[in-house]
Structure formats: structure tokens, C-alpha cells
């Protein structure tokens, strides 16, 4: 059952140099209880796309086109009050950089209590009890609630942020780079935690990461973004085993293999196009080693290349 259906979403930022089309026609759907990974390099629009779902764009950003159907309701058309209700109660977010997303001079429990009392008329004690439950849920000692953020490690802070995101029992949680800045062991723990919470609470998750290997561990589907667009969207196993878009192919090639012969890691030469003036051609054509004439004259659209596997390439691999 489809929970979230995003259609031809376009988001742009008004800057001094002109209008930057950060998200330029993004389509994807998310089923209930599904984990979707959004991947791509810095500046490709992953975070912008996610923030526009919550309508939390910076003041110079606007949603220009498209629709965001959440549980049948078009979020693009909802007013601010309704949006404030939906945020946290239905859709919540774990912000990028958990290290700074907690108020340094207040205990972490009081900040979770704040999230609860803003949305529900309940007593402080009830909210505090719920906060303790949430701590247990994310495998933290409830006593830790009395700590200040500087007394917690990075992984613990990330758990607090996840607990905070779950405070009002949302249906959809967006995790923006949930494992960035954590060491590999802690990364694995946080990913396991997210996967467990998804099952236990039947959550739907959107996980944003530039690291395909992180997404591959927990996601049902992965969408690869490039220069403001989704270039490939497939089941995780299909994407990893049979990437179709040259960009996805190269991304997967850049993951160091644990087994097998040692080889030089590949990087993709070149830089993404300027989103102030995106070219009327395949946006990856400048960097594509399989480029043909058609790629520089015609902009490819997402099309099905296998069952539940779409890619935006004239000549999929």
C-alpha cells in the first residue's frame, strides 16, 4: 500500500546568481513499512527533496511544481497549521548532524518531553515516562535522560535523536545521513537499530546517505539521485547486482570490495552540471564513459528497464 507518492517534484532556490533548480522533477513512491534509500553525491538534492516533504525549506527555497501525496493528502496544498500537526505526529525527521541538533544547556529528556507536549495535551510526568520508554526502545539507559548532550557519545546522541523522532509515533521517519560522522562500529549499530525499529513499529523510512554500502544494509529500495533528479530506482538487490545507469554503475564500482582481488578504487572524473543552467542533454553525459551522440542532444526520462526497476538513460547497461 502506497504511503507516500511524490510526483514530478521541483524545488528551486533563489540565489544572488539566479534560480538554482536543486530538485528538478523527482518521482518516487514509498509503501507502508518500506525502507527507501536516497543516494547521490553532495548537492544532488537528496536533503532538499526530503526537507520539501516536510515543507521545511530555507526561506529562499520554493516548491515550484509537482505533488506530494501522503496518505492521500497533498502536502503541497496543506496550510501551515495542518503541516505543523503532521510534522512529528505523522512525519518526523532525524536531522543531519546529530552532534549539534540537541540544545547544549538542557537535559536530553527535557527535549524529548518538549517534542511530546508540543503535540499532545498530556502531563509532564506522562511525557517523561514516554521519554523513558523511548530511551529503552532505542537501547539507551533511561537514566541517561538526565544527561546533557556533551556527556553523551556521538552514537548515544544519534540514538537520542532517533528517540526524539519517534516521540509522537509517526508513520514516516526521514533519516538524513543518520550514520555520518560516526565510526563504522557505531554506524552498524545505528543501522541495526533503525531496521529493528522499522519492523517493531511498522514504520516507513526514508534513509538519506551518500554511502551506498550503508543503504544497501537496510533499504528495500534505493533511489540514486544525480543533479536534482532520480536517475535510477530499483530494489536494493537489483540495483547492486545489475545497475543500469552509468552513474549507478560507477558508484557501485567505487565501493571497496572486502573479498576478491585488490584493485585501484575508481572515482568518476568531472563534476556535476551547474544547476543554474542545467544542459538540455543527459546531465551525466559529460562524465559518462559510454556517451553517444544522442546523449548530448536529448534528455533521457525515467523508464522501466526491468520489473520495478527504472532508470533515466538512453543506453542502460
Amino acid at each position: 500500500m502506497v504511503l507516500l507518492d511524490v510526483k514530478s517534484l521541483r524545488v528551486s532556490f533563489e540565489t544572488l546568481r539566479g534560480r538554482v533548480r536543486a530538485v528538478d522533477g523527482v518521482d518516487f513512491t514509498l509503501d507502508r513499512g518500506q525502507i527507501l534509500g536516497l543516494s547521490g553525491e553532495s548537492g544532488c538534492g537528496k536533503t532538499t527533496a526530503a526537507l520539501s516533504l516536510l515543507k521545511l525549506l530555507p526561506s529562499n527555497g520554493t516548491i515550484d511544481d509537482g505533488s506530494i501525496l501522503f496518505d492521500g493528502e497533498d502536502l503541497r496544498k496543506t496550510d501551515d497549521n495542518r503541516m505543523r500537526e503532521l510534522r512529528w505526529k505523522k512525519i518526523s525527521i532525524v536531522f543531519q548532524g546529530a552532534m549539534n541538533a540537541l540544545d547544549p544547556v538542557r537535559t536530553v529528556e527535557s527535549q524529548i518531553v518538549e517534542a511530546i507536549t508540543v503535540h499532545e495535551t498530556t502531563s509532564k510526568t506522562n511525557a517523561a515516562n514516554r521519554a523513558k520508554e523511548l530511551f529503552r526502545l532505542v537501547e539507551l539507559d533511561p537514566e541517561r535522560g538526565r544527561s546533557y548532550p556533551h556527556e553523551l557519545s556521538g552514537g548515544m546522541k544519534q540514538r537520542v535523536m532517533i528517540a526524539m523522532a519517534l516521540a509522537c509515533r509517526p508513520e514516516l521517519v526521514i533519516a538524513d545521513e543518520p550514520t555520518t560522522a560516526l565510526d563504522v562500529m557505531i554506524q552498524a549499530n545505528i543501522l541495526k537499530l533503525l531496521a529493528r525499529l522499522q519492523k517493531e513499529l511498522n514504520l516507513s523510512l526514508i534513509v538519506i546517505s551518500h554511502d551506498l554500502s550503508v543503504l544497501a544494509q537496510i533499504c528495500d529500495r534505493i533511489a540514486v539521485m544525480y543533479a536534482g533528479r532520480i536517475v535510477e530506482n530499483a530494489r536494493t538487490t537489483d540495483l547492486i547486482a545489475h545497475p543500469a545507469h552509468p552513474y549507478a554503475v560507477e558508484l557501485i564500482r567505487a565501493i571497496p570490495p572486502l573479498r576478491g582481488e585488490r584493485r585501484q578504487l575508481q572515482s568518476i572524473p568531472g563534476t556535476p552540471p551547474d544547476l543554474l543552467n542545467p544542459p538540455l542533454a543527459c546531465r551525466f553525459s559529460d562524465r559518462c564513459q559510454w556517451k553517444q551522440d544522442r546523449c548530448t542532444t536529448q534528455d533521457p526520462v525515467l523508464r522501466e528497464i526491468a520489473s520495478e526497476h527504472v532508470a533515466a538513460c538512453h543506453f542502460p547497461r
Partner: peptide, 28 residues
């Protein structure tokens, strides 16, 4: 401009709450 203020805003905290419970203690 710090992330925790953005976080509080996202949660839906009122401006009054953000000013008195988040910013004031930090400038105290």
C-alpha cells in the same frame, strides 16, 4: 542559526518557547 534551534522549530515549538527555553539559557 544552530541546528538545535531548527530542530526545535521542526518539532513545532512556539517562538516564545524557543526564545525563553532554548536561546535565553544559552546566552545566560
Amino acid at each position: 542559526e544552530r541546528p538545535f534551534i531548527e530542530n526545535a522549530r521542526t518539532i513545532g515549538s512556539s517562538e516564545r518557547h524557543i526564545i525563553f527555553r532554548h536561546i535565553l539559557p544559552n546566552v545566560m
